[in-house]
């Protein structure tokens, strides 16, 4: 209804514009892939195929749970008559309670559907990779035992955090990010529908759209948001129109270029301030590390690149394992500086 991202979201499988082959194989699943690749959209489209338009009638319920320590938790559930979408990781370590209580509750009630067509309900679990071990363990038995009444779709970015028993019980499907041509095509289609004032020549048109696609790093959601923002900000789009850069990305880029320019302790200490700033703006530390790494790679000599990538992977692991992201972000900067100094 509102944003283009939402307005032009495909509702059925045949309207999804890329990865045609993947759509045909959807069953009962773990769907994984980078963000903005269209995982959720695809799943909803499958549901649409199965249940018809009723899936789109979504509403938000608030459920309350009681943990073993008698704490009350509130939890939002988006549901339609045919499916239910939960994000257990909202509750942090208490996600097990949701998995146990909620899923069992759904699983143990049989769908009353006189047409007899669909005897099961679909539960979509978001951010399955941040489910705690306990929750995943609770999940695996539920999956089999109640498979008559319930179908699970787990959506996650990677499968590495999902425990093996779950992997073996599900079909893993990877949705890769759309490539630049895909995005360009989609944007083109959209701009026709919205009557966006683009240059008439095909070439220039593609050039602009391609730039949007590049700027959004093959993330379709972001590409759409970005494109809409761009259209809103400009009377007409030309090949010279500047792209909209996000503040936080700009900050990281600046940090990267600073690091590549000079390296000393004062720089480390100033980078700490930047990191604090970024973290307090709710930018996930891993994303900071990722962006910083890619920005750095553009700026340094080829011979240093492997070592920077290696460092990034080490510190990415540390970010996952540890809790004090500021230590590790700064550690990455310090080590990178050393690496660059050695390589120069």
């Amino acid at each position: 209804m509102s944003l283009w991202v939402d307005k032009y979201r495909p509702h059925t499988l045949d309207t999804i514009d890329y990865h045609f082959d993947v759509s045909k194989r959807l069953k009962a699943l773990v769907v994984y892939g980078p963000s903005g690749a269209g995982k959720k959209t695809r799943v909803i489209a499958v549901l649409h195929e199965l249940f018809g338009a009723g899936v789109e009638k979504m509403k938000i319920d608030v459920r309350t749970f009681t943990t073993s320590t008698n704490r009350k938790l509130e939890f939002n559930v988006v549901s339609s008559p045919y499916h239910m979408e939960i994000t257990p990781s909202d509750l942090g370590n208490n996600d097990r309670v949701v998995i146990q209580d909620l899923l069992k509750e759904i699983a143990q009630t049989e769908q009353v559907d006189f047409s007899g067509k669909h005897r099961f309900k679909v539960v979509i679990i978001n951010e399955a990779d941040s489910l705690s071990r306990d929750a995943q363990a609770a999940l695996r038995r539920t999956m089999e035992k109640y498979s008559k009444n319930i179908r699970l779709v787990l959506i996650s970015n990677t499968t590495s955090n999902i425990i093996a028993p779950i992997k073996s019980r599900t079909l893993l499907i990877r949705i890769s990010a759309p490539n630049l041509q895909d995005i360009t095509k989609i944007l083109d289609k959209l701009s026709e529908k919205q009557e966006v004032s683009l240059p008439s020549s095909q070439e220039e048109r593609e050039l602009i759209l391609n730039r949007v696609a590049i700027a959004s790093k093959r993330n379709l959601r972001r590409a759409l948001l970005n494109f809409e923002a761009l259209v809103m900000q400009n009377q007409e789009l030309k090949t010279t129109t500047p792209m909209i850069t996000l503040d936080w990305e700009g900050v990281i880029l600046k940090l990267a270029s600073n690091i590549s320019r000079d390296r000393n302790v004062a720089r480390i200490s100033s980078s700490r301030t930047v990191f604090y700033e970024l973290i307090s703006h709710c930018i996930p530390p891993k994303l900071i590390l990722k962006n910083l790494t890619f920005d750095l790679l553009k700026l340094v000599n080829d011979n240093i690149k492997p070592s920077i990538v290696e460092l990034a992977s080490i510190f990415d692991e540390r970010l996952s394992l540890g809790t004090k992201s500021i230590f590790h972000l700064e550690g990455f900067v310090a080590k990178t500086m050393v690496a660059i100094e050695k390589g120069v």
């Binding site: 209804m1 509102s2 944003l3 991202v5 939402d6 979201r9 963000s35 903005g36 959720k40 959209t41 909803i44 979504m58 509403k59 938000i60 939002n76 988006v78 979408e85 994000t87 978001n126 951010e127 993330n219 959601r221 972001r222 948001l225 970005n226 809409e228 923002a229 761009l230 809103m232 900000q233 400009n234 009377q235 909209i244 996000l246 503040d247 936080w248 703006h281 709710c282 930018i283 996930p284 994303l287």
Partner: peptide, 28 residues
């Protein structure tokens, strides 16, 4: 609203949606 909520996780809000929304709601 429910549609958007399925689309956007909280951390997409901070990284993608909100910075761009700034531009979208102040059209030129």
């Amino acid at each position: 609203n429910a549609q958007l909520r399925t689309l956007l996780k909280p951390h997409y809000l901070s990284t993608d949606a909100l910075p761009l929304l700034d531009h979208i709601i102040t059209p030129e």
